Simulated assay, not measured.
Amino acid sequence: MNLKVFILALSTVAVGLVELIIGGILPTVANDLNITLSSAGQLITVFALVYAITGPVLLVLTSKIERKKLYLIALLIFFIGNIMTYFSPNFTFMMIARILTAMSTALIVVLSLTIAAKIVAPPAHRAKALGLIYMGISSSLVMGVPLGIVISDIFGWRVIFLGIAILSIGSFILISIFLERVPGGNAIPLSQQIKAVASLKIGSAHLATMFLLAGHYTLYAYFTPFLETELQLNANWISICYLLFGIAAVSGGAFGGVLSDSIGTHKSILTVIILFVVVLFALPFTTFSMIVFIPIMMVWAALSWSLAPPPQQSYLIETDPATSDIQQSFNNSAIQIGISVGSGFGGIVLSQTGTVSHMAWFGGILVIISLLCAIFSLTRRTKGKRKAILKTAAQN
């Protein structure tokens, strides 16, 4: 594999840490900034929302800028955002820092994907290159949260973001040395991108992704307090749970791909969502024993990554091959909006109920909405099929 692709993947590991690592240290951050747990959760909500919205917008606005130069600028802003986070004196200052890092992260990830596709010479190797970039992102999930909990417990939570800033310097140096100049181009206008997802069939498919992730993050964004209150776990055990969760989540992507190949995209989408509902509603009943809880937790983790990457992407490509690139971009935005909606909804539930014990059930309700959206999408005919039916009817 191209060395440059490995460097890009390493960069995505560094930037990918920022979004989710805060979930594991949420109570510590809340205590230090003297805010409520639900308010601290908005640091995840706003990050995901800014990420989702600014990704496509920034890509259009910067389309003519040389890619390597733009990548280095984004890394510099990312570095500044993490230094600001390290020195944050209050919640407002930290929120501004999170917005900066969210915008730069969105641009760095999409640039990593587009540059990787361009610098790999044989087209047959492009899928592997993109897979490596996605692996970098997923690796940050596996390593980030448990590592963050351990570091926070020993050195304090702020050191984590200082470390991420240092990692970004390493990425900056490697990109500067090894990546060649990549010319900009003409990006697809936002109006055309929005038009591509305007159909009921495709739009409802993206809503299915969004509501599933929203249901997931209603609980996952507050997973640390859930583990503390429901299972009375200390920092070491919480770190182990996050590590197991991350490993299962990454393996869930492979499971979704195998399931999609075995029974088809339609059946696999419905199967994953239905199982997700069952697991979320069952999860609170398993907290009486770690032996029972951990296997169910790992199933939940695997299912959380079993829909959006493999079967849903395949379904979008099958539905409208001409706009498949745009659909992948919006599918990624749907994931981020789902994270934002879920963590925000979870914060509301927590502030209203004052307990995390039933948050899984509230998340399950959102996943039921995801199921309804998926059923609606799957039962709509594609434009091509509809035209073919009308043409046949006219001929007869």
Rank of each mutant, 00 (worst) to 15 (best):
V292G: 01
A249R: 03
T12Y: 09
I160A: 04
S262Q: 06
T45E: 09
T229K: 13
S260C: 05
L162Q: 07
G148P: 01
H216G: 01
D32S: 15
A393L: 13
N236L: 15
F281G: 05
V29T: 06
K201P: 02
K385P: 00
I83W: 06
P295L: 07
K69Y: 10
S11C: 15
S239E: 04
S306M: 07
M359I: 14
G185F: 04
L212W: 00
Q192H: 13
S152G: 14
I149V: 15
R67I: 11
L100K: 02
L390F: 13
K68P: 10
F288T: 08
A308W: 02
T12G: 07
I335C: 06
G364Y: 06
G41H: 09
S357D: 08
L243W: 03
I247P: 05
Y134L: 14
I73K: 03
F288Q: 11
G264V: 01
I99W: 07
I151S: 11
L26D: 02
T265W: 00
V182K: 09
L190Q: 10
R158P: 02
A282S: 13
E180S: 14
L70R: 03
A235P: 00
K385F: 02
P295V: 05
V18A: 14
P123S: 06
K64Y: 10
A14C: 13
S112T: 10
F155W: 13
W237T: 08
F87H: 14
I294Q: 10
Q42S: 11
L231P: 04
V356Q: 06
V279W: 12
G347W: 12
L303F: 07
V292T: 09
M359C: 03
L132P: 01
A124V: 10
L283R: 03
Q192S: 14
V110Y: 04
